[in-house]
Write a protein that binds this DNA or RNA. Structure first.
Lengths: 339, 339
DNA sequence: ACTCTTTGTGAGAGCGCTCCCAGACTCCGC
DNA sequence: GCGGAGTCTGGGAGCGCTCTCACAAAGAGT
């Protein structure tokens, strides 16, 4: 189990170098020797010592997923587990390991930054749910640490993967338009996040494409959480929309409560659509029409791209990867569609 | 940044050994020298190389969280993210790192077992959501790898943390009894999981304590997921319970649908209680009475105990840690309580 | 003044691995 | 038959760190 190269070498009657070559699949070993060595490896249950190997190769095959602030909304939403699921799947097949870094306060992050990144503990980093004004990405760039962002990032040289937030929001809004609605309100997400911005953009695009005026009075802003959706719903009520597109399911659920409190029925009086397709969306009454995102794929793709960058290691001449995955409209009862 | 001990030593005008001593807070360094060295460390932005250090200390300060099967129910339930949140918090304060290992198929696990555990990559392991018949824990024991189980484990020498599933189920059932119900059915969880067993046990205890007969016809079994709850609800209907305690919120939601389809109202015709307090529980109509568990604390505790075992390292004479955290009854509308 | 501790510091070995270089051997063509 | 190319293998250095050991200097006791 805890044997060393040297011991395996003795067992196989060859030198340490030869065993190393076999382990690393070097072609310069005769078939006989190779077989002999493999046998010795099997017999001894040998496994290379990770630290020793890292020390000389200068690579740990560990990728860190950094979530700068342990965003509370992440826990009412399976985004986070699904992302990790996808990422670990990809890591398993690529023979990499996943390290998880969550932070509550910035001091903690600074501390981690030194400990994890400067100590050579990880080969690369996946940054998820990073607020636009966070210094993390600039820091990573400056220190030339390979990374990829989950979520669009407005910089020429940053690799990222994202879901098509604009397209998803447009689809949902178009769907409401197609059902005959013209006074369509939106509860936008926080405008300091890319997702919040993009979903509002999609809403705007859909209206503009049909020459429906975009009215400020029909746009409220929330923070993706339920309470903010309820507040926004209450506020929008007085402007009498016939439909509401909320930029998150939790806000849609909040809005649903506000509408009910205001004596309005969904979908009879007001149609409702959300974004995310959280588990609760299919469970509430009426079922919530929403936009589904391929989050697990997002996670695996992030790993795959990062690994390709890491393995390629042609540093400068490697093109920037930017992948946007399509979203999918899930029609349920809340929009009042027969479809 | 990527400087070495040697360089810092030269900068401070001392030897490598002395810098090492300062870094590791050895007391055998004069105050003057110590100050000088710290200055050199700050100036050079020195950070010890993790692999080099691990090679000689034979410790990586990495803990792995292993979830043997990427249980799908974990993703309709914030159990997993909350656990990780708690675990990372504790890791941050203890200066440990968290590695994540999820698996879909057993071959993958075997592969990981070699790669992660035998290679000295991690110092210890947290095993979560492990089925009773899984060989993982016996394997870990045999290989003398320090670990702790999240979830009770029936072995004298296994450290574990768990929530009080028995007590929680008993509380929920008692609550229904207190509201006047006598024909109380339960939708139990899978009986090959400890949580499933314990929640059924709590239900039984509550009835027996009030001398209410435990009837087989009022006990159905599900797999914690919604569909199984709906099936179980349908099945129980014919036996006319006046209340149902479901061992998970998802099953309670399934049962709710079955009851509605059968023309019954909750809580007027049948009272309903669940377990877990998932986000959907507060969002559905009627709000679901349920049992809340301190999952985040469970995660941080698991790390704290494992680290104490790791740091203590008095191997044999260290007592087995077994912590069971209390659960909390959350009363909402579905049980029909005024309270 | 001399040993005898005590305290602070440096030199050296070695953790287990990879990788370079050199050597031994085989095989071919002239 | 002999040099040169090609193939395979072993030896040695060294990655950056910790830790033991030895030793120098300083203080304490007789």
């Amino acid at each position: 189990m805890a044997s060393t190269l040297e011991e395996v070498a003795k067992l196989a009657g060859v030198s340490r170098s030869t065993v190393s070559r076999v382990i690393n699949h070097s072609p310069h070993v005769s078939a006989d020797t190779r077989a002999k060595v493999w046998e010795a490896i099997e017999d001894s249950g040998y496994q290379p010592h990770a630290a020793a190997r890292s020390l000389v190769t200068n690579s740990t095959r560990i990728i860190s997923v950094i979530i700068p602030e342990a965003v509370t909304t992440l826990f009412s939403d399976p985004f986070f587990p699904l992302l990790l699921r996808g990422a670990t799947d990809a890591c398993n097949t690529k023979q990499y390991h996943l390290m998880l870094s969550l932070f509550t306060d910035p001091a903690e992050r600074q501390e981690m930054y030194r400990r994890v990144l400067y100590s050579g503990l990880v080969d690369g980093v996946i940054v998820a749910s990073n607020p636009l004004d966070d210094p993390l990405i600039p820091d990573l760039q400056e220190d030339r640490i390979p990374f990829i962002s989950v979520g669009r990032y407005p910089d020429q040289h940053v690799h990222y993967v994202d879901v098509d937030n604009v397209g998803g929001a447009r689809m949902a809004t178009e769907h409401l338009i197609r059902l005959g609605h013209r006074r369509i309100a939106t509860i936008a997400g926080p405008q300091d996040t890319v997702a919040g911005q993009d979903r509002l953009k999609g809403y705007r695009q859909a209206l503009q494409a049909r020459s429906i005026p975009v009215l400020d009075e029909l746009i409220a802003e929330g923070d993706f959480a339920e309470a903010s959706g309820q507040a926004a719903g209450r506020q929008l009520l007085s402007n009498r929309p016939t439909a509401i597109f909320a930029a998150s399911d939790m806000m849609a659920i909040g809005a649903l409560k506000a509408l009910r409190n205001g004596g309005l029925q969904v979908p009879q009086d007001v149609a409702l659509a959300g974004f995310d397709d959280i588990p609760a969306a299919s469970v509430i009454e009426p079922g919530l029409t929403t936009v589904r995102q391929p989050i697990q794929r997002l996670g695996s793709l992030a790993v795959e791209i990062l690994v390709s960058v890491l393995d390629g290691e042609h540093a400068a001449d490697c093109p920037t990867h930017r992948v946007v995955l399509p979203t999918e409209l899930v029609v349920r009862a809340s929009c009042g569609a027969a479809w």
